[in-house]
Structure formats: structure tokens, C-alpha cells
Design a binder for these strands. Structure first.
Lengths: 253, 253
DNA sequence: TATAGCCGGTGGCTAAGCCACTAGTCAACC
DNA sequence: GGTTGACTAGTGGCTTAGCCACCGGCTATA
């Protein structure tokens, strides 16, 4: 971009950053027009224009004579909150825990084609299979079955798998997770799955088939994960111009 | 409403009306700030604020040195594909059809509070209840139960409900649909629902609870809709920087 | 103690003006 | 004739200065 953005758009970005820092503080007071005017060195009119756009987007709310305030809990742009069960459970005020059911290194040759199709044949031919049960306040919520490319988890041990895999990769391996593709289906739990999730056999669940990426074209894992239907729900917003947050899963209230 | 709305909000409404009259003329020129300032008797700053909000909503586009222009409705077609079953079915190569199960006008007083909470109490107190079965190639896929604000569907007849409601509003009423909020749950079908959807009793389904909006804060409908789990799935992409595509539903292959 | 009124701060809005940018015109030049 | 370049009118971007209506807390009064 050769030409600089107009001031009010730059301001908009900065205010949005500021807003993100205040995420969750629903109803809290935001900066006033006059504060912004002074702090950023722009006119009140420009400050108002930038604020006004944020109001139009539903992030803020004007209250005449009082100030501008955060509307609903600011949208979570944090990927961790989107993909990490640990984070989501804590956000819902529940204590997350994990029961490791299975953990083994397999040769790619012994894996059925569907898995490899999503991961691309790994050159070293090793894949890591992880089956975990995720619990919130002791209640089973998620049955996770995941294949991970072996070369991205050297020296992985069973103890490492008791917490957030998201944290594991971003912190220990310092491999930033770029995103995940999900296909969400509604299925009836089979006997074995129901038993593990401590739910009635045949009860409804989400089956989330998902590929996780390190970089846009570098797959890291492929998973087939069951979410108890009575404990989980997804939220989504369809619209042309909303600050399009992707669909987010959350523990049902 | 005891207090009058701020001028820029009133202006916003009037401009929106004007915009509606120009629907379809993509790329056409809209009023300039100075024209609005003269015609409506407001200051240029106020005119700009009202325009700016419409720009933020994606309806208009600023071009420095030229004027404000209608945006191309490319995104609009996207939205149609997202909310319209008719569109999705055709995209999957199946022939959509509709069986109208129920259609009645009700008084708001007779509606349980949950519905009104999402729609806001309509001043004229009339609500339209629509129950439809949507089929793809003759197979029932969706059981739709929807409440619509009566004042946005004057003269609605049963015949109107056999096609796409999305088309109905955008074309016949020329009321642009701005978006929809969705909560997606996994549930077991009850006997009556299963019978209508021609699925086994207790089989898994999506329950999508959704509020549709005309403008960011103007609800149009609230629906509680069942999707056969074996016929439908949702796709989603989680990531920090994505092409702004929300989760989309699609007929299962 | 309770109330009426003041006062500082807020967003709403106007006015007047300058800037950078765009497109069209039109005269001057090759 | 065709091209170039200056000029001009009109546009959104942005600032400054100022007044208004509104809100809530403080204060002085009854």
C-alpha cells in the first residue's frame, strides 16, 4: 500500500488493539472522545468517527453524558481460546483435567488412508496416536482421538499429554499453531464411546473432524473428536461485515 | 420512545431507506456529504458520521476525491449461500422443496418469554410463526420453526413460504438481511420430530437456535431449527488471520 | 435527614476552513 | 492531429472552536 490509510482508520486499529486488551470486562468504561483526542493527537471529530465505527460494529456503546462502554464480552481473537479445551473450560469457570487413554507411535504404513490423506505422507513414516478423555469438573466432555506427525513431537512423553496440547506446541516446541479446519457432524454415541463419556448409549454428540496446521499448508495433526451433546455447543455469526470471529465451541451453561 | 434519537441515527435510517431504493445498482454513486448536509439540514460532520456507519456496515464505500458509492453485493451472495437452504441445496446438486406445516399470526402476549427476549417486544405485538419442512430431492433434511416480527412481513401468504425466505425479504420486501447469530447443539430427535424428518427416533441432529438481523441491532426472526445429523454438517476454520468466512452448513455428501 | 440545585464531564452537533485527491476541461505545445 | 500539462470544480479527510443536552455526584439548603 503506497498511500497511508486515513487517520481515523489507523486510529480504529489502535483502539481495537486497546479493546482486545480489555477483553471480557463487559460493561467497563472505555476511553472518552476527549481522552483519545488528547492521547493520540487527533481532533475530537476524528476520535468520534473512529469510536462511532466501533459502536456500529457492536463492540462499544455510546452513553450520552457518561462515556463509551464495552458491550458484550469482546470477541475473542485469541486462537488459544478457540482450540484449547483447557482455556475454554477455565473460561467457563470449570476445572479441566485429562485422562490419557492411549499413546503410541505407529508406522504410517499401518494407518488407514483417510488419516494420511489429510496429513500428507510423512517422510519419516512415523505417526503419534493419542486418545484422551477431557473432563470439566470431573465430568467427561470430550473424547479426543488424534494423529500427530511424529517429526513435530520429538521426545514426547505420556506426562506431556495431560495438559493443553496447544501450550505444548507453542511453548515447548515453539511451533506456532496457525489454525485448524473443522467439519462438525451430529452423531449418536456408540456403546464404547458412550461408556467412556459416561453418557447414555445412542445419545447425541458432536463429531468434530479436524486438521490442525502449523503454517497454512503444513498439517500437524488430524483428529476425530467427540463432544458430549449435552455439555457442548458451538456459536457462530453469519454476516458480511462483522469482525468475523470464527465459530467457537463452548461448554454449555 | 420518550427521547428522540440522535440526529445521526435518524439520518442513518433515512439514508438506509434511500439506499434500499437503489438496491442492486452496484457501484452507483450515492449522495455526497455536502448534498446530504444541504438536503437534510445537518452539518457535514453529522452527514459524514451517518455515512461512515453505513460504510462500516459494508453497504457503502468511500472514495476520496470522488464520493460515496454502493458496494458490490458480492458479499451479499455469500450470505445468501450461508443462510438460504434453497441456495445450499442447489449448490449440492439437489432439488430443494418445502412443505409448509404451520403458518399463523400470533399475539406477542401468547408467546413464551424466550422468543421475545431475542426479538425485543414488537410494538404492534404481532408475531408470525412458521413451521416448515425443507427437503432435498424429496428427502426431509430440515425442520424449521421460526418466529418473525409481523411488521416486517405485511401481507404474507402461505404461498410465499414455499421458497427461500432470504429471497423473500431481500427481493420482495427489499429489506437487506444483515446476518444471523447461531448457537448449534447436538440433540436426539424426539418421536414427533423424527417422524416429520423420516429419521429413526432418537437419532442425532443439529439444533440450531438462531436470530436473524436486518441491521446489526434490528432482529427480524428467531428460529429453532433441526437438521438431520446424517444429512448435514458444518465447516469451520479457526485461525488468527483467515479469509473472513464464518462457519458454513452444507448438505453431507 | 432529605431534597433541590449546582457543577464538571460526557457525547451530540454545528460552523468555517484547509488539505489531498480525482476527473474533466482546455489551451499550449510538438 | 495528437499529446501534454495546467487549471478548476468537486469530493472526502481532518482540524479547530464552540455551544448544547444530558448524567451523576457533590453540596448547601430546608
Amino acid at each position: 500500500m503506497l498511500v497511508k490509510d486515513p487517520v481515523y482508520l489507523q486510529l480504529n486499529k489502535q483502539l481495537r488493539d486497546r479493546l482486545r486488551g480489555m477483553a471480557g470486562q463487559s460493561g467497563a468504561r472505555f476511553l472518552t472522545e476527549r481522552q483519545i483526542s488528547a492521547e493520540f493527537g487527533v481532533s475530537r471529530a476524528t476520535a468520534n468517527k473512529a469510536l462511532s465505527n466501533l459502536v456500529a460494529e457492536g463492540l462499544l456503546e455510546f452513553r450520552k453524558g457518561l462515556g463509551t462502554f464495552l458491550r458484550k464480552p469482546a470477541l475473542d481473537y485469541d486462537l488459544q481460546a478457540l482450540v484449547s479445551f483447557t482455556g475454554k473450560a477455565r473460561a467457563a469457570g470449570k476445572e479441566p483435567s485429562t485422562r490419557l487413554l492411549q499413546f503410541k507411535i505407529q508406522d504410517a504404513a499401518s494407518i488407514r488412508g483417510e488419516v494420511l490423506k489429510h496429513l500428507g505422507d510423512p517422510p519419516d513414516g512415523s505417526l503419534c496416536f493419542i486418545q484422551r478423555l477431557r473432563l470439566a469438573d470431573g465430568q467427561p466432555v470430550i473424547l479426543e482421538r488424534r494423529y500427530v506427525l511424529g517429526r513435530f513431537c520429538p521426545g514426547l512423553s505420556a506426562e506431556d499429554l495431560l495438559g493443553s496440547l496447544y501450550d505444548l506446541w507453542t511453548e515447548r516446541y515453539t511451533l506456532p499453531i496457525a489454525g485448524a479446519e473443522q467439519t462438525i457432524q451430529a452423531v449418536n454415541l456408540r456403546a464404547k464411546e458412550a461408556q467412556l463419556l459416561e453418557a447414555p448409549c445412542g445419545s447425541a454428540a458432536f463429531l468434530v473432524i479436524s486438521t490442525g496446521y502449523l503454517q497454512p499448508r503444513q498439517p500437524l495433526w488430524w483428529e476425530q473428536t467427540l463432544y458430549r451433546g449435552d455439555a457442548y455447543e458451538f456459536h457462530n455469526f453469519l454476516g458480511p461485515v462483522r469482525p468475523a470471529a470464527p465459530a467457537t465451541g463452548a461448554l454449555r451453561p
